[in-house]
Simulated scan of single mutants.
Amino acid sequence: MGHNASSNALQSSRGRFFHHNANLAVLNQTFAEAKPSEIMQFTMEKAQNPVVFTNFRPLAVAFLHLVSRAKPDIPVIWVDHGYNTPETYRHIENVVKQLSLNLRTYSPKMSAAHYNAVYGGIPALDTPEHDFFSRTVKLEPFNRAMQELKPDVWLNGIRHDQNAHRKNLDVFTQGNHGTIRVAPMFHLKEIDVEEYVYENELPDNDVYFDPTKGEEHRECGLLLEK
């Protein structure tokens, strides 16, 4: 099935291509063997107000490079929860400058120092306290960003090989806030992304910590939001 067929199947009323009633199965079938650059090009042609979300985790620079080459001025949402490593903060400054990213930083309404003083630091995983922590430092700022920017497309760098939840997703899926999530690198493996970083001589971030996940295979919560 070609791109024209998928365009016809997904065209909406009011001229919006990406909408929650779209037939995403058609798109995922069409782009099952496509290169990330082809998915990016198609998405940029059809999206009205796309945004990127990133946490600048290891290898995330590959996705940011891919997206910024296709649309240099795309808003890049970053939630600074305040618990990043010094290496991560320096890495972010470097990547933003090197790729000329249109970075939009959103921070929690309560700083990390404030939270630590009142609640005693990062709580244990799988507790109500940790759920509250995740909502406070990541989900609330993210939801605020989505409400302010009102995107139709949320681009992210997830891959099928990262954890069990993501294995069951696809390139095009329904996201929260009425968005369609697009993951151009979904079908790649970690070695593919490592090669992309190497071939494009991109800086990477090896000293990374996400306080809302605790463990690498866990979801941080953004993909589970409705």
Rank of each mutant, 00 (worst) to 15 (best):
K109V: 13
R14V: 08
V153D: 02
D204G: 02
L155K: 04
I122E: 09
P128G: 06
Y198K: 13
H114C: 10
V182K: 08
V153W: 01
A5D: 11
V26R: 09
L155F: 09
G214V: 00
P141R: 07
F63A: 02
T105P: 02
L101P: 01
Y208M: 05
P86K: 07
A32E: 13
T43H: 08
Y89R: 12
H114S: 13
T173C: 03
K109Q: 15
T105V: 15
N168S: 01
E216G: 00
Y83G: 08
D206A: 13
Y208E: 06
S100N: 11
P75G: 02
M44A: 10
I158N: 09
G221F: 12
Y198W: 01
V153Q: 05
D73H: 03
P72G: 01
V171S: 11
T212P: 05
A145L: 15
L222C: 13
A47S: 14
P50G: 01
Y208P: 05
L222S: 10
Q162K: 04
M110H: 06
I39K: 07
H81Q: 08
P86D: 04
D204R: 02
N21T: 07
L202W: 11
G15L: 05
Q41W: 00
S111T: 15
N143C: 08
M44P: 03
G121E: 05
W78N: 10
A70Q: 13
F63Q: 00
K138C: 09
P36K: 02
R181G: 02
L66S: 04
K35H: 14
I74Y: 00
E38S: 11
K213I: 00
I191E: 15
I191A: 15
R104K: 15
D73W: 01
T212L: 01
V67C: 12
L27R: 02
P151T: 08
D161S: 10
H130D: 11
K109F: 08
L103C: 06
F17S: 07
